[in-house]
Nucleic acid binder design. Structure first.
Lengths: 311, 311
DNA sequence: TCACACCCATGAGCATAACTGATTGACTTG
DNA sequence: CAAGTCAATCAGTTATGCTCATGGGTGTGA
């Protein structure tokens, strides 16, 4: 940080622009015209530059002959142009960033959100803002996501349940738990928890969704016994299909188009799983994050409609 | 050149330094202490930055909590640090250039100078200033060299004879023409031009050195007939050795250690060839060029002594 | 050779930008 | 709720940057 004789940090970028203009025009006066200054101003700007460098940057032959760069001036100009180009590039990049058409966005998510919700949002983002670079951090441990949010590792994160402290969030929708069973196992329509109280259960390894679901079942009076646990949702349905048992899963987690299993609303319902999108409280969000939130809300509305259709 | 919303060319580098300090310290006040400003000043500097960008670069939570970068601020800081590093590098580079310990130097030269003089100077330069990058332009047409000097393609150039207009120069030494003959051809010591008036001559294709030499011979009353011309000096001596003829060459051009040819001063002498080092008049020379001139003078003095020894 | 044209440097005057110091208001914490 | 911390802001001063006018130095053409 300690500089030698020259410390260009005191430099004014205007002076470099003036240097360039004079070098091109060959005359302080014409350069001044071009820049909209008086000749005197340009003279003083170049003088300031030379004071900073400790040496002349132009030879002034006097009379009507044009001024010419000294070797030092030529070295400086070469670097100055590069620097100004860099500054212009910065202006552009930051402008793009500010308007949200470029930038980086890190997103926290968990399995079911990344399975059903995230792909649609990401697809829309990539289509509307192709220059936004997205990075996804997935964890099924809610704590990880909250921590990532707090450290800034992710700027927004999908979460389940209540908004943690120091965050703001939007509620996206409530994801009801549904019963997944063999097609012939129950008549179409709602099923009472009592009807499958004795069925062996298929489920995920304990994570936020799973635990909330189990708590819901217990509060409905059931004591479910799990005969198989896997975090792979298609394996869950496969197990149901094979007759090993039934599953109670968030609607988001099941592939609704699979004709080989039946989905039943649970009636009376067990508490829904609230899906929300959270970010740090009182922090300015990047425009990219704003867009992401907007899109998430919009797409979630579509999901909510879908949910009403089966519930 | 027309900027969008943001034009960082109006930016003051001090503001970027302040941005960095605040980001590191977490507080306007501590950043101010570090920078030697008042808290108010830093506050205003950041405000100026934000005015320029059109958006906040820090979130100010209020109270004793530290300020934190907004996403835009983080993007800016990343680029700002890069830019400041570049500026510091520029300071260093220009300082090295200014003191002559680094830089570029283009040198104009012609055959005999590049054969005998240039290697020694270049060697000393490379040894004393290893970071100076030298570029040599060689031409046996004096006009080319003068033109290169005028356009700035070379900053200094070796020349023969008189200094052209618009140049300054130092006289390095006078290079006498010597007779190159077979060892048994003449008795050791000076030879009168009349003694080899009828000998067939070996010489170079017409260039500055050669023409000056021929003119000298003619003014001494000779009408030399050339039976072989080559620009390769060792071929000239080889031809002399083979008995094809004798050569009159600038002393600089002959390899003085070759025992298979004899060198004779010419007495009365034909006009010497004045060797000088020239540069553009009234132009600031780069420190590298100054060093080069100094070294050239110094080394030429050694040559002059060597010349006196045989003349 | 002399007047002229051209061009940069410089000084005076002025506007504005930048900094200091003191104060205010917002917010957190004990 | 009081104390402490911190950024914003206001007023006042200093410094900087600009314009205008002028001076000096250097080629150029009558």
């Amino acid at each position: 940080m300690l500089m030698g004789v020259i410390d260009l940090r005191q430099l004014d970028l205007k002076h470099l622009v003036a240097l360039d203009a004079v070098a091109v025009e060959g005359t302080f006066g014409r350069a001044a015209d071009r820049l909209g200054y008086s000749q005197s101003a340009v003279s003083q700007q170049i003088a300031a530059l030379e004071r900073l460098l400790g040496d002349r940057v132009f030879d002034r032959p006097g009379g009507p002959r044009p001024v010419v760069l000294t070797p030092l001036g030529a070295e400086l100009l070469e670097r100055a142009r590069e620097l100004l180009a860099r500054v212009d590039a910065m202006s552009l990049e930051l402008d793009l960033f500010r308007t949200g058409s470029a930038g980086k966005l890190s997103i926290g998510t968990f399995q079911s959100a990344s399975a059903m919700l995230l792909p649609r949002i990401v697809a829309r983002m990539r289509q509307q803002f192709p220059s936004i670079e997205m990075h996804v951090v997935e964890s099924d441990a809610e704590d990880d996501l909250i921590r990532a949010l707090a450290t800034g590792e992710v700027e927004v994160s999908f979460l389940v349940g209540e908004a943690p402290p120091d965050t703001e969030s939007v509620h996206l929708f409530d994801d009801p738990y549904v019963l997944v069973a063999r097609p012939d196992q129950f008549p179409e329509g709602p099923v009472d928890p009592a009807q499958f109280a004795d069925e062996p259960m298929i489920g995920q390894h304990p994570n936020a969704c799973q635990l909330i679901g189990e708590a819901g079942l217990r509060s409905a009076g059931l004591s479910p016994t799990y005969v198989y646990r896997t975090n792979d949702n298609s394996t869950v349905t496969a197990m149901v299909r094979s007759g090993m048992g039934v599953a109670v899963m968030p609607f988001l987690c099941v592939e609704p188009e699979d004709p080989r299993v039946a989905l039943h609303p649970i009636e009376p319902p067990i508490p829904e799983r609230s899906i929300l999108l959270a970010w740090r409280q009182n922090r300015t969000r990047s425009p990219a994050a704003e867009r992401f939130v907007e899109l998430a809300v919009e797409i979630s509305r579509g999901f909510a409609g879908q949910l009403r259709a089966i519930a």
